[in-house]
Design a protein around this nucleic acid. Structure first.
Length: 639
DNA sequence: CTGCTCGGCGCG
DNA sequence: AAAGCGCGCCGAGCAG
């Protein structure tokens, strides 16, 4: 019988086989088994009921093959994602891990696009999914998310997860409910033998084990272990969500998409490269109105020349510039640009490339943005235009439950800064309406543009005009982003609530600043330096807000994921895609694909998860994080 | 032919 | 109505 330890490291063994290594709280390996690649999913399924945290170099490299076999895991450590955070975080700046020279773990991920469609679409093997479902209250979100180095809570302390997060003890790991306890013998790292592979060679110590130890040490010695531990756990849980969403896919109806394209563009051209009928019509009208048979609306450079020849004083072909011009060519030109964009970005070619068997399987890239937001690759998953959302349709008997965090970023700012006035403005109502009620500004639109400007560093136009009023009404919140901006302008780093730290400015940036400070610096040099400094200040100003909002969103989807898995399933062996599951995530918005009978329950969990995420990150700060929830048949019906 | 930048525009 | 943040994708056009 295997000894239960908090971590099981997954690593490549020679000959395409896989090691599974027990590791203790410090990352010390105590036992190992080696399995054939084909036996890997079954081996994971066998160990999962003890709720280990699976440790692997990259979730995107290991988890898809488990999902393809119908095996789901609760928790993991994505070493590469965690490494990136720990290397940069100001909370772990003194750690051995942060001070070491760059190594393999700092290299860009070798796994990305290549895994997308191929692995996600591997048909399931014969292996059925064993039940990995815990009792509904067996694990709180904190247990689920938080790293054991900061975990002092007992499982029975449900409902006090925020307190747990705020009170790291650096203590022992609570034994998962129903799991056998550890033996002392194992902690020494001596005297234990590979339990399931008696003939195995000496215990391996792969790079993953070394890295896990370094990460555990960095967390243990961090200036605020609970925050960084929560961030690492949320980042890793997000990686599981990403793999699961890629596996399940977004329900996409090719017939509906095709009808939509046909109604806007005309029938699909038989030959690629030929303009659809509607575009060709508009093209001809553009030539006629410009009296220029060679006018080419697909080439910005050529189009500017054509427009200027026709007497229009344009400097670009941007839509917003064209809209300011009065001329008969403008309406057909704007329509052409809109439809040409649809045809090239989300037309028939897109359908052929990205939609298979009624699902769009995008490749999500957790941590792909410096602020901690996800990026995506292939198919433009995070830029699905509203135009085509009518093709996202729930399966028969199923619903889409779409939730959106209301005014997330300003609420995040209010909580980060501890601005009680702004918190009050958002209590039980739209935050921007609340700002209007406070008397700071006169319309909701002004409140919104003013707050966005404050968070992005806007200084001009309407946004700039609102800033002084907002600064008077909410000095704490505005002061917070101003401080972040000044830090960036001075070349310093800033850090989110949970410990994600901004990159340092480049050497080129520092050189520009140095040049401006030198004796005899020219006005041009000083001006350039000021401009670069302000630009970097806008980045750091936004980083703290966008980055902390991304942390909130990670906690939200992690909680949603766990809650969905606890909902009643058709049977204990139900696969991910046959029960309510996350289908899409977009910064502050999620979509759950769920059987109609469970849609209301899902909606309730989406709301509860949002509240949970808020208290997990901000404790009892008086800021609410409401979500709007819509239960719909197609995505275009949401908001 | 491939690989790159740029303009433009989709999303939050 | 647009400019402050963060992205990815497309076609055009150019360099090699």
């Amino acid at each position: 019988m295997r000894t239960v330890t908090p971590f099981v490291i997954v690593a490549d063994a020679p000959g395409g086989r896989v090691w599974l290594l027990d590791a203790d709280d410090s990352g010390v390996v105590s036992a190992s088994v080696e399995v054939a690649a084909t036996g890997f999913p079954a081996a994971v399924a066998r160990l999962e009921p003890a709720h280990p945290r699976w440790v692997w170099d990259e979730t995107a490299r290991w988890y898809p093959r488990l999902l393809a076999a119908g095996v789901r895991v609760e928790r993991c450590v994505d070493l590469r994602l965690c490494h990136t955070i720990l290397r940069a975080s100001s909370l772990t700046a003194d750690s051995v891990l942060a001070k070491a020279p760059a190594g393999d773990w700092d290299a860009p991920s070798p796994t990305s696009a290549a895994t997308s469609l191929a692995l996600a679409q591997v048909q399931a093997g014969a292996l059925g999914a064993p039940s990995t479902r815990p009792a509904p209250d067996a694990l709180t979100l904190f247990d689920f998310l938080a790293d054991s180095a900061a975990d002092s809570a007992d499982d029975s302390a449900a409902g006090s997860s925020a307190d747990s997060a705020a009170d790291p003890a650096g203590g022992s790991v609570p034994t998962p409910a129903g799991a056998p306890g550890r033996t002392d013998e194992v902690d020494s790292g001596e005297g234990s033998h590979p339990a399931e592979a008696p003939g195995a060679p000496a215990r391996p110590d792969p790079a993953e084990a070394l890295e896990l130890r370094a990460q555990r040490e960095a967390v243990r010695t961090a200036s605020d272990p609970s925050r960084i531990a929560l961030l690492l756990a949320a980042e890793s849980a997000g990686a599981l969500v990403a793999a699961e969403m890629q596996h399940a896919g977004i329900p996409w109806r090719v017939d509906a998409h095709d009808r939509l394209l046909e109604s806007l563009l005309g029938p699909r051209p038989a030959t690629p490269g030929i303009r659809p009928a509607r575009l060709e019509q508009l093209h001809q009208r553009i030539r006629d109105e410009l009296d220029d048979p060679a006018a080419n609306p697909d080439s910005p450079v050529e189009l500017v020349k054509s427009l200027r020849r026709a007497g229009l004083s344009v400097t670009s072909t941007r839509s917003w510039e064209l809209k300011t011009i009065e001329h008969p060519v403008i309406p057909p030109l704007l329509e052409y640009k809109k439809l040409a964009r649809l045809a090239s970005a989300n037309g028939w070619n897109w359908l052929d490339t990205w939609v298979r068997d009624g699902r769009f399987h995008p490749n999500y890239i957790p941590g792909g943005v410096v602020t901690g937001r996800w990026a995506s690759e292939g198919g433009g998953a995070l830029q699905l235009p509203k135009q085509v959302r009518g093709a996202v349709i729930a399966d028969p008997g199923w619903k889409l439950v779409v939730a959106d965090a209301a005014q997330l970023e300003p609420r995040i700012l209010a909580a980060l800064a501890g601005d009680r006035a702004m918190a009050a403005a958002g209590r039980d109502r739209d935050l921007y309406d609340g700002i209007v009620s406070s008397g700071a500004v006169d319309t909701r639109a002004h409140a919104k543009v003013g707050m966005l400007g404050a968070m992005y560093g806007g200084t001009t136009g309407e946004s700039g005009r609102m800033l002084p009023r907002l600064a008077r009404a909410f000095p704490v919140a505005i002061g917070f982003v101003e401080d972040a901006a000044r830090a960036g302008e001075a070349g310093a780093v800033v850090t989110t609530r949970l410990g994600r730290t901004s990159p340092r400015p480049s050497d080129a940036w520092l050189d520009v600043q140095d040049a401006a400070g030198a004796d005899g610096a020219t006005d041009a040099a000083r001006s350039r330096a000021r401009s670069a400094a302000r630009s970097w200040g806008r980045f750091t100003r936004n980083f703290v807000v966008q980055g902390t909002a991304a942390e909130w969103a990670l906690c939200w989807i992690s909680s949603v994921r766990r809650r969905l898995w606890s909902l009643e399933a058709p049977d204990a062996r139900a696969r991910l895609e046959t029960r309510p599951h996350l289908a899409f995530f977009l910064h502050d918005e999620v979509m759950v694909h769920a059987p109609e009978a469970q849609a209301d329950a899902v909606a309730a969990e989406l709301r509860a998860a949002a509240a949970e995420a808020g208290s997990l990150i901000f404790g009892d700060a008086p800021v609410q994080f409401p979500v709007t929830v819509a239960i719909v048949d197609s995505y275009d019906q949401a908001k």
